[in-house]
Design a protein around this nucleic acid. Structure first.
Length: 471
RNA sequence: GCUCUCUUCGUCUAGUGGUUAGGACGCUGGCCUCUCACGCCGGUAACAGGGGUUCGAAUCCCCUAGAGAGCGCCA
């Protein structure tokens, strides 16, 4: 039997990190076992499902590279099949029509709560003959006694008493099927062997197993993965900032970094932290996933992203960085090759957004010197070295503007003036970058270029002059 | 309220009766060094609490507490 997993989001919002991790686990499990991964859109809730959400989910999956072998299948396209199954259940006496008014149900619930009981439908219509032409819902006739064993791949055996379960609605009064019915039919029809989903579905599982059995299907294996919580340990929500996968793309994270972060949330393989997709597929096993919920920790994601930024092919990073440069009004074609900037800067940024920010100086003059840096390095004592550097640079031919020559010039000035390299390189750095942090001085000079270097040194000299005798 | 689930450093985790309770992020001390960053070396910090079982419990059992989920004509 070949393994078949499915990711089945409901299109009522974007793809969030919890869903993405579930999808990743489904993907990895299928790939590991040479099986198939199918995508199914659970849009039976006509009220809340939107095309925008479908697109957002698809976009998120594509960005992460979680490609599916089949689908996306839409449940709204399968209503005939669900109704066929419902009719079958009705015919076999395994389901029945119910016309209990909402008021009655509400009162029942309130009374049960008052009696400290679990609210559940009392089976009132089980033996009533409800007119099929009048408004009604259809309920599944859940077994009254016995236990359902959910043998979960992550949590082990979980027995549920049928007494705790009630006769759930499988078709609404408007004729549409409900979730518990459609999942079951789809999982059976699509021959899903392993249902990997959030643990908020644990309590649904025994009901679904009962429906499956009533229909004569063998239940799939289940694996309920724990939730992802926010940094503060509370359920992940908008107030934790980003939850949408796409927002991580926009904040400048690499998809492989997010995937790596997500796979390690609730799962591990010895002491290994960095996993390529291939390594994940090789090492992953759903039964190794943790039972407890875990908190999302942005600083670890940052670290991973930085690791990937350094490892990744500079030309690819450059391509991904380009739109972020655009967002801060920089056209990378107007300056040094963006891939060269990436090579010089990648280890200095946690995200592409940050990489763009710290690289802006390569493409345009900065507005003001960073106050602290200027105060410390653009002092009167820096005037002479800057003037000598400027003079030397000015004499350099375009083809001499190389790292070797530039290093030679800077070192030459420091030797000539009997100053530590830092006393020369730092003022120069602040002069041409605007602040005291940048790649090695010759690399920085290469990226800035001769013309801008001279212009910015002049600006720094002007700053020093304006400062006068101070310091 | 009822049912179900979960509980090792701040966070992610290793650990399945005998370990100085390991690793990673973060924080922190140092090295490297023209700055920042990277990198390297070191430090900080945990078995929720209480009872058992056992020669011996993070590991097995029970209770308590805390956290989460479900109890919809949502999925």
């Amino acid at each position: 039997m070949t393994v078949r997993t499915r990711f089945a989001p409901s299109p009522t919002g974007y793809l969030h990190v919890g869903g993405a991790r579930t999808a990743l686990f489904c993907y990895l499990y299928a790939r590991k076992h040479g099986g198939q991964f199918v995508l199914r859109i659970e849009d039976t809730d006509l009220e809340r499902s939107t095309a925008e959400s479908v697109n957002a989910i698809l976009e998120g999956m594509t960005w992460l590279g979680l490609d599916y072998d089949e689908g996306p299948f839409y449940q709204t396209h399968r209503f005939d099949r669900y109704n066929q199954v419902i009719e079958e259940l009705l015919d076999k006496g395994l389901a029945y029509r119910c016309d209990c008014p909402k008021e009655r149900l509400e009162k029942l619930r309130v009374d049960q709560m008052a009696r400290k009981q679990k609210p559940r439908y009392d089976g009132c219509c089980r033996h009533k003959q409800v007119d099929p032409n009048q408004p009604h819902v259809i309920r599944f006739k859940n077994p009254a006694d016995g236990v359902v064993i959910v043998d979960d791949l992550i949590r082990g055996r979980m027995p549920f008493a049928n007494e705790e379960l009630d006769d759930l609605i499988i078709r609404r009064s408007d004729g549409t099927p409900t979730y518990n019915l459609s999942v079951v039919v789809d999982d059976a029809d699509m021959e899903i062997t392993h249902v990997i989903r959030g643990d908020d579905h644990i309590n649904n599982t025994p009901r679904q197993i009962n429906i499956l059995r009533a229909l004569g299907f063998e239940p799939p294996r289940y694996a309920h993965v724990p939730m992802i919580l926010g940094d503060d340990g509370a359920r992940l929500s908008k107030r934790h900032g980003a939850v949408s996968v796409i927002s991580y793309r926009d904040m400048g994270y690499l998809p492989e970094a997010l995937l790596n972060y997500l796979v390690r949330l609730g799962w591990s393989h010895g002491d290994q932290e960095i996993f390529s997709i291939e390594q994940m597929i090789e090492a992953f096993d759903i039964s190794d996933v943790n039972k407890a919920a875990s908190s999302f920790n942005t600083s670890k994601l940052d670290w991973l992203n930085q690791q990937y930024l350094q490892q990744a092919e500079p030309s690819r990073v450059a391509r991904l960085l380009s739109p972020h440069m655009g967002r801060i009004d920089i056209d990378p074609s107007t300056g040094p090759d963006l891939a060269d900037v990436v090579k010089a800067q990648a280890a200095r940024a946690k995200t592409l957004v940050e990489l763009a920010e710290i690289s802006a100086f390569c493409y345009r003059d900065f507005e003001d010197f960073d106050e602290g840096s200027a105060k410390k390095h653009l002092r009167l004592v820096a005037r002479e070295p800057l003037e000598k550097l400027r003079a030397a640079f000015e004499l350099m031919a375009f083809e001499d503007w190389t790292p070797e020559q530039l290093k030679h010039v800077v070192e030459g000035v420091s030797e000539e003036l009997q100053l530590n390299l830092g006393k020369v390189a730092q003022p120069l750095r602040v002069a041409i970058v605007g602040r005291a942090a940048s790649p090695g001085i010759e690399e920085t000079l290469m990226l800035v270029g001769k013309e801008a270097t001279l212009r910015r040194i002049d600006k720094a000299l002007g700053y020093i002059a304006a400062r006068g005798g101070e310091a």
